[in-house]
Nucleic acid binder design. Sequence first.
DNA 1: CCACAGCTGGAACGTCTGTTCTGGTACTAT
DNA 2: ATAGTACCAGAACAGACGTTCCAGCTGTGG
Lengths: 216, 216
Amino acid sequence: MKRRSDKQERILDFLRDFLTQHDYPPSIRDIQAGCSISSTSVVDYNLKALEAKGLIQRDREISRGIKLVGEERRPESEYTIRVPLVGTIAAGQPLPVPTTEGVDPDFADETVALTADQVGGRHRDEIYALRVKGTSMIDALINDGDIVVMERAQAVRDGEMAAVWVKDANEVTLKKFYREGDRVRLQPMNATMDPIYHAASNVQVQGRVVTAIRAM
Amino acid sequence: MKRRSDKQERILDFLRDFLTQHDYPPSIRDIQAGCSISSTSVVDYNLKALEAKGLIQRDREISRGIKLVGEERRPESEYTIRVPLVGTIAAGQPLPVPTTEGVDPDFADETVALTADQVGGRHRDEIYALRVKGTSMIDALINDGDIVVMERAQAVRDGEMAAVWVKDANEVTLKKFYREGDRVRLQPMNATMDPIYHAASNVQVQGRVVTAIRAM
DNA sequence: CCACAGCTGGAACGTCTGTTCTGGTACTAT
DNA sequence: ATAGTACCAGAACAGACGTTCCAGCTGTGG
């Protein structure tokens, strides 16, 4: 089997262009016109060759039944995970959206697309995103407007950044979490702010920060 | 004009399913069979209704000339872009990989997958990634080990974070860039470090920071 | 020279497919 | 009751489309 001929290369290019432009594949006669090929049989011949080489896939007897395959294909959504942007989290401000439970990305107002690397091996249902408001985490390199990707968690290790629900104040904040006996220290990552102490029974960890993303 | 009827909702669902399954749109008779509709004219009728509502778009007289539109469409951002991780950039250390020119993601040793949001509307050829070594950018909220996504650029505005090639030292550093007359100030974002001054002719901007990503 | 494989041109065939026409039902407002 | 609107059923038409057949053109190896 030879390499892809010049004509086959042109067809492949045309396929890509046509697909991005129309969102459906070209007919054989579209290819014929688009690549200046004289006959439909020549197109068919070359399409069969391309299929034999595994570069495309065809559904017979079906109009426009051509798919790009493998390398040629536009990368798919399999690699991206859409997580709900459930709200904004601030530095001890009243929480806007406390319900981080089972939010379906399909119904969230806003979502953030992440790649598989960025969520690690975590299950997508355990992941959500928050927009950071305020500068209380500035020393932890998280600034106003950043997006933090959270993993749902009931507990975190000391020193991890966590979203913590303070029950009596009914607010959620993003802080470093330290357990100190029967109370916890919530440490803002900003040198100008003092730590906050609460009874251990009064706080509930909601999630830990997995990734931080900042657009410049 | 009424809301989408039950039948139209079924058609929309079928369209989505068919598209993800086949990579080309269904014919009217495919829809007819898939949605248990009795006549092609009914399908056509409802497709026209859907088009009038702006939910789909049709190309007349063209087989399978149906596109999903807007909300219904698979969002662009679900596509991932693989950018080459061309090397490590440090705080004034000798540069490891100065050749950020035309690196083909297919041949890079390591790549980073990003979503379309994360690179904005930029062209994929203009984007590459660097791993940050050292803490010279700590005050700009970029830490050792972070990944910065760069956009190739020959010039940046004052105050933008840029990868700058210092010619006589033959090194590349990541700094905030300020033009001051015929010299430039390269400002490390770390309070413990002093700015560096160079003749404007001795420095060359290679790119600007687009996004910073940190895994915890 | 011939044989053969790879490829091209042109045309025709039969099916696939979008479109349209006619007629019908159900519901609402006048 | 009448008119109007929204929707459905069936059939038929015309063009789009994949497929196939055949003749011809190239280059290569005997």
